[in-house]
Structure formats: C-alpha cells, structure tokens
C-alpha cells in the first residue's frame, strides 16, 4: 500500500497530543492548611520572658524499618508565652499526625541551652484531630534543655 509522506507527517502530528497521556507532573506536592490555635504556658513562677520557638512535626514518617517519629515540618518564632494563632501548610505525603514542640529562648541566643548558659524550658504535645483545618493545642514548657526526641514516645 502506498502512503504519502504528507499523510505520515499528518498522522505523526495528530498523535503528538497523545504524548502527554504518559504524564507530565514531576513533583506533586500536597499541602494541607492548618490553623493552630492554643497557648504556650510555663510553670507557675517560672521564667516567661523571651521568644518562643515553635516547631510543627509529623508524628510518624517512613515505612517498615525506615519508620521514624518527629519529621520536622516547620519552625516559627512567637513573641512570647501565652495564646497564639498561626497557620501552617502541612505536607500530607511526608508523614502522619502532628506534634507541636516549643521552647523558651530566655537568653535570646536562638539556641536551646547553649554550653555555659542557664537552663531553658521546653515542652511537647501531640496535636489531636489532624487532619482538620482548625486545631488547638496547649503546650506546657516544663522540661529543661529537652530536645523534642526525648519528650515524645511514639
């Protein structure tokens, strides 16, 4: 059967739009917006001056032998202890559950308990109800110099 080159070219061009059916999305990121309301508290009589560093983390990430807790999502700085309301974008493909960890930067050096400085307080709470767009949490900062890892039991 004789086929003309024009027909061949026309067929090729006609089929070109079918190529995207193979997919064109590379990174496909899903973010879930959460507005977190709550309060950062310190023990009665404890130090309360200084900025608060608030970290949002996934409770669980990974699978099987590579599963681990407390994958960090983001860190923000609050003006101080007390009530707060902040909006976060949570990457839902990277883990499950939410944990909020905070510590009070008493000396303003941006470091939790740097060598040679006085103790600073930290606290952690699992945020119940995720996924939901509005969540609440209260964190009591009562553990001196504690990293998130030692305060969380998976």
């Amino acid at each position: 059967m004789k086929r003309s080159p024009r027909a061949a070219l026309a067929l090729a061009l006609a089929l070109l739009p079918a190529l995207p059916l193979g997919g064109c999305v590379n990174d496909d990121v899903h973010l879930y917006e959460v507005t977190l309301r709550g309060e950062i508290q310190v023990p009665r009589g404890g130090p309360y001056s200084g900025h608060v560093h608030l970290e949002l983390r996934h409770a669980r990430s990974g699978e099987g032998g590579l599963a681990y807790p407390l994958r960090r999502i983001t860190t923000i700085e609050l003006d101080g202890v007390g009530p707060f309301e902040e909006t976060f974008l949570v990457p839902t493909d990277e883990g499950e559950g939410l944990v909020a960890y905070a510590w009070l930067d008493r000396d303003g050096d941006g470091l939790l308990c740097a060598p040679g400085t006085s103790d600073e307080l930290a606290g952690l709470r699992e945020v119940d109800g995720f996924p939901a767009h509005a969540l609440e949490v209260t964190i009591l900062l009562e553990h001196p110099c504690a990293g998130a890892e030692i305060l969380y039991a998976p």
Partner: peptide, 11 residues
Amino acid sequence: LLASRTTIEAA
C-alpha cells in the same frame, strides 16, 4: 520542560 504541581487544601 519539567512541570511540578502543588495542591493546597485550605478551609
């Protein structure tokens, strides 16, 4: 051309 997509699910 490598396209990426970010989907934001808000209230």
